[in-house]
Structures are given as C-alpha cells and as structure tokens.
Write a protein that binds this DNA or RNA. Structure first.
Lengths: 250, 250
DNA sequence: CGAAATTTTGATCACGTTCAACTTCAGTGG
DNA sequence: CCACTGAAGTTGAACGTGATCAAAATTTCG
C-alpha cells in the first residue's frame, strides 16, 4: 500500500509512540502501517468527522492542523483541542452509534485512514505497541486535565498565555516553529471557543500581552519576547513542588 | 495475596473492563490481581496522591468516592473529576518526576495499590486486557471532552443539571443509587470547584432546580423529580443527530 | 451539648459578553 | 495589476452575570 522505505520512521505519530515506548521497533510500526486503508490530503476547512454521523474509521495526522469541536443545539461551540501532526482522531466513537463531536481541518492536512477496530486489534496484539498507546492516551488525559483547570479556574489572560505556550511547545516538537516564533493557524474567534472566551475578549488579551512586552504579533505569526514572563503568567507551566492539599490548605 | 474466590469477578474495575472487552476472561483479571501490592482502607478526607510528590504506584477503587484536583499557586482549586468505584488513579504520573495533581478521598474508600510500571506491563502482555484498557482510556477521554464543553460553554444552571445526571448515572452503574434518588458525597463548594463556579452560586442553581420542580433535596440526598427536564436542560445527554458544522453553521 | 463546617441569603461590584461599527487583511475575478 | 468582496481583527459602549464578602441559619460531628 505504501512504500516500505524510510518515511514511516519519520512519521510524527511513530515518533510519538517511540517517545512513550523507546524500545518500540520499527517492524511493529510497519505492522500498523500495513493496515492503512487510504492516504488522504485534505484541504483547509473541511469537516473530516461530523458530529452525529457514524463511522468505523480513525485517522492519524501526518501534517497540518485540525480542530476537534463540539456544537450545542443552539450553536454554541466548544473547541476541544487542536489536532497536530502525530495526533490520532476518531477513536472516541468506539461502540457508539454516532460521533459525539466533529473534527475539521484548519490547514491543508495529510492523514492516514484506518479501520478503527483493526487499529485497536493490531495495537493490542503487540505488547510494545499497546504499551505505547496506553502511555499516549494517559498523556492525553493529562493534557485535558490541564485544560479543565484552565477553563474552570484561570483568568482570561492566563488562559491565552497558557494556550500560546502549549501550542508553541507542540509545534516545536514537530518542527513547525523556531524557539520563539511560530504561526497560529487559528482565528481569534476559534481561540475564544477553545478557551471559553468571546472573540473580542481574546483580542483584548492579545493586546495586553503585547503592551506588557510578552509577545509580538505579525498578523498570525507570534513571537515570544519574554517566555519566562509568559510561564509565570500562565501559572501552570513550571512544575512546582508545592505540597498544600485540600485537607490542609496552604 | 488475595483470596482467589469469587470477589474479583465482582470488583467494579473488572466489571468495567469486561464492559469494554466482553471476551475478557477472568483468568486474565486474576493475573492483574496477583500484582496487587496492598489492599487499603482509607478514611474520608485523606490525601492519597499529593501534587508535587513522587510515586511509583497506582490505585484501583473498589468502593467509596474520591476527587482528583489541581491546586494553583494562589490557592485556586479545580476539581478535575470525582473518582468512583471502578476507577483507576495514579496513572498520569508516568515518567514524570512529580504528580501533577492530587487525589483525596471524600468518603471511606477501599482501594488496591499496584506498582504502576507493573500494572502497565501486565496489561500490555495480554491482548484482551490491553484492548480493555485502551477502550477504557478512550472512554475517559470522551468524558473529559464533555466536561470541557461544560466548563467552556455551558451556563451555570446547565452545568449543575449535567453534573447531577452524570454523577447519578455513574453511581447507578455501581449500584449506589436507585433510579431517582442518590447521595452526593460533595459539599457545594467542591461542586463549585468542579464546575468552575463559586460555592454560593452552586447553591442558587440548586435553588432554581428545586423551584422549577426538577429535583428535591434532603440534606445531601438528591431526588430527581423530572429527569426529562434535567436532560433537556443539560443539553448534552440525549445524543442528537444534528449535522450543523463549523464550516457550514446551521 | 458545644464547636466547626456547611448551607443559605443578601448587597455590591468587577469582569467579560454582546452588539455594532469600523478597519485591515486576504483571496478572487475582472 | 487592481478593484472588489468577504472574512477576520480591532475598538467602544452598555448590559448582565456571577464573584466576592459578609452574616445568619442550619447541619454535622466530636
């Protein structure tokens, strides 16, 4: 189906699995890759998964960005996450009749399509693969815990700062950014729906970050001027060794 | 270590795994159970995992309730989830130096302690176990997606209604509730920290749910008077077949 | 029975939404 | 290449909501 040469080893999803299971050998990755049903190139702004539809597929992202989002009946939208190279989507519909949320490409995107059931089976049959997937999923859970704190208890300014840091570190990991400059493939309205804010308010927060000398912006390009300051502001990035507890508040 | 008799089969965690992998046979569950390091009975209001601490353990809940929470440097608290019988916690610290969040018991709790590394290894060596764990983790992700929508885009009233429905269906599944009555092991302040609201505002929302004839309360016991109404209010429970998309809004 | 925690209520106020107008930018066809 | 068009960014004003703080009432537990 695909050439068996070197490109599989450079696929961001495989790199990611290897990050969680360094002893994963490439023959196992190839086993997974044999199950690829189709290689797809999706233009920007196309829905790939549609909330309410049924599908037996899942997808792995090779390049490009997408967003996972949920629509409420009255049109409110929550963007759940930005899907970046190396991510998987379409796993959640397991045994469900309808996709509970949508995925929409933000830029041109290269993805590989799998049969979801087969994807899981192949992973479960290889101890190393299943270890990698489990660690990957647990890691994802951790990211969503962070997002809950962000949405539930952080100020708008903190949320925007935290989002920028998070997104930057992700695109840095897949080589789409320099140490301090990167492109945002998102409108401010989408960022609002990601962070539980209104579009205009996101704009004001960007303005404040700019005027406080933390970032510079050139249309949709962001430059970090004071990363330390952003970390301090976001309040989540530097792991603290605080030991205050709910039972024994600080 | 533990009696090999029938109780393993009735453990809520095993029941849950079987829900995701019905072909899981009990001999495999027993393999996992052989790895239990210790059976613990924890009193209410004890921290089991402390944010910032290091641990190589993970735990499975047999009975009782706990909460996962994150503290910010200035004392703000986000309750990430309520840990119920059949849940696991302590997985997220994989390869991290410090636990990124805490877990604190809400009631007296029976849990089993594992070595985290060993837990993962045993799961990855059995295809059926690893399938069950993967499905379980994916399902968990789905729950957190829902919570993101809740925190980011739902009104306080919707959040409280949704929380009550969610919690009820969970305790119903583990047999700690009747069809319409159940106990909440949480103070309103904790519910506030769970839903991104202040304690007093949670109280007002309860008041409204009561005055609109949706629920009744007796101290910390909740009775659903109009479940249909709660579902309609929460806006998430009944899976819709709406096909509006971000690219093509309704 | 007494002490502490939790629930309940009220008043005030800051914050972020909403809506609208205007500007800038990007993509397209003439 | 430029004018045109629609989308996205930017700004302002008014409003509503939920936080905050404090006090009182109630429940829980030692």
């Amino acid at each position: 189906v695909v050439d068996a040469g070197g490109w599989i080893e450079a696929h961001p999803f495989v790199l990611r699995l290897r990050h969680f299971a360094p002893d994963l050998d490439f023959s196992e990755a190839v086993k997974l890759w044999d199950a690829v049903e189709e290689d797809l190139r999706i233009p920007a702004r196309r829905d790939i998964v549609i909330q309410g539809w049924t599908s037996t597929k899942c997808w792995v992202v090779e390049s490009g960005f997408a967003m996972r989002y949920h629509l409420l009946h009255d049109g409110r939208r929550q963007v759940l996450s930005i899907v970046t190279p190396g991510d998987v989507f379409g796993l959640a519909e397991t045994a469900l009749e309808a996709a509970p949320r949508s995925v929409c490409s933000l830029s041109e995107t290269k993805i590989q399509r799998f049969n979801r059931q087969r994807f899981f089976e192949i992973c479960s049959l290889s101890p190393r693969l299943s270890m990698a997937i489990m660690c990957f999923l647990v890691h994802q859970l951790g990211l969503y815990y962070e997002r809950l704190t962000e949405l539930g208890r952080q100020s708008p300014l903190e949320r925007v700062a935290h989002f920028l840091l998070r997104f930057h570190s992700r695109v840095l990991a897949v080589g789409c950014a320099s140490e301090s400059v990167f492109d945002l493939p998102l409108s401010q309205e989408i960022i609002g729906d990601l962070l539980g804010l209104s579009g205009p308010h996101v704009n004001r927060m960007f303005h404040r970050l700019r005027s406080e000398g933390l970032i510079r912006t050139y249309r949709r390009r962001i430059e970090f001027v004071d990363i330390e300051g952003l970390h301090r502001l976001s309040g989540l990035a530097p792991p603290t060794s605080s030991v205050a507890t709910a039972a024994n508040p600080a």
